[in-house]
């Protein structure tokens, strides 16, 4: 609607312009009716809380009454010098890496196998998609049981093999990798479905033509599938990164960030060090940092990588 028709001189263009203006007037009316409620809700429930959080982050505040103890940038200084926060950032990085290097190739592989309608593909799609449908907390609790060294599935496995019990979630060097496995298991189904949808958009005749020209499986994948699936892959990367940054509810039932704060993400860190301790000023500072990371990534990614999508 931002196209400027003023430069066009022909009669048809002029009448089209007149019609357009009419449409615009209708739209303006519509906007006048429908925009204020949405704008109000957005302001009250999104914009204001963000601004308030930014304000609280300069106070030492336990949540009672109005924030009064102004501490300047001290919350941010404490945050950036806190070892547990560095670990949380590194863990977020690890989760993103695992999503991009393990989860996405796996999802793509499975998707290429299940994209064509053949017997049983629906069944397998359902099986692989099931973990994604499961509630995060439920999945976390199930895996806590699986990893349990005394009563869980891991305990049964070490029992059969005659090994000493292994306590994966109690070991601060390994707990985060155990969680990564769960994340890949939980979310690769979503990306698989995205890829299947993307693959079904590709014209079959392209493959036929290429095959007639003598192209093999890998060439077909590299020269047809991958380029035509690129928009879906870019979208999938976006979901992976934003999802990784916001990861919270799978981790809480498994380790709640422990042992020794080794499995925090930014959000579990915020919950543990801001909300549980009723240090809402500090928690707000974490929230502001997370918000900035998300905004910079989202806008940067849309402007560069997803520019043409």
């Amino acid at each position: 609607m931002t196209v400027d028709y003023a430069g066009e001189g022909s009669a048809t263009a002029a009448s089209r312009g007149w019609k357009l203006r009419l449409v615009r007037r209708d739209e303006a009316l519509l906007a006048l009716v429908f925009l204020p409620p949405a704008l109000l809700l957005f302001t009250v429930f999104v914009a204001l809380p963000i601004l308030e959080a930014a304000q609280y982050s300069f106070f030492n505040w336990n949540g009672f009454g109005a924030p009064e103890k102004f501490v300047g940038l001290q919350n941010y200084v404490r945050l950036f010098t806190h070892g547990a926060f560095h670990t949380a950032l590194a863990n977020n990085g690890l989760i993103i890496l695992a999503s991009l290097l393990i989860q996405m190739p796996l999802a793509l592989l499975v998707a290429t196998m299940l994209a064509d309608r053949e017997p049983l593909t629906d069944t397998f799609r359902l099986i692989f998609f099931l973990p994604y449908v499961l509630a995060e907390v439920t999945a976390g609790l199930i895996w806590r049981f699986i990893y349990d060294g005394d009563y869980g599935v891991v305990a049964a496995m070490t029992g059969w093999l005659g090994l000493d019990p292994v306590y994966v979630l109690a070991d601060r060097n390994f707990a985060i990798y155990a969680i990564l496995l769960v994340i890949v298991w939980k979310y690769f189904g979503l990306h698989m479905i995205l890829f299947i949808a993307g693959l079904q958009q590709i014209d079959r005749s392209l493959y036929e033509a290429a095959r007639i020209d003598g192209a093999g499986g890998w060439t077909l994948f590299r020269t047809i599938t991958l380029p035509l699936l690129a928009p879906t892959i870019r979208l999938s990367i976006f979901f992976s990164v934003v999802g990784a940054l916001q990861l919270f509810d799978v981790i809480m039932p498994m380790t709640a960030g422990g042992p020794s704060d080794s499995t925090h993400t930014i959000v579990t860190y915020l919950y543990n060090f801001g909300i549980i301790r009723t240090r809402f000023g500090f928690g707000s500072a974490v929230g502001v940092v997370l918000f900035l990371i998300c905004v910079i990534f989202a806008f940067g990614y849309k402007r560069t990588v997803m520019r043409n999508d």
């Binding site: 306590y167 109690a170 601060r172």
Partner: peptide, 10 residues
């Protein structure tokens, strides 16, 4: 080492 094995995860 007085605690049960895996006590940090219990």
């Amino acid at each position: 080492e007085p605690f049960q094995s895996g006590y940090m995860g219990t």
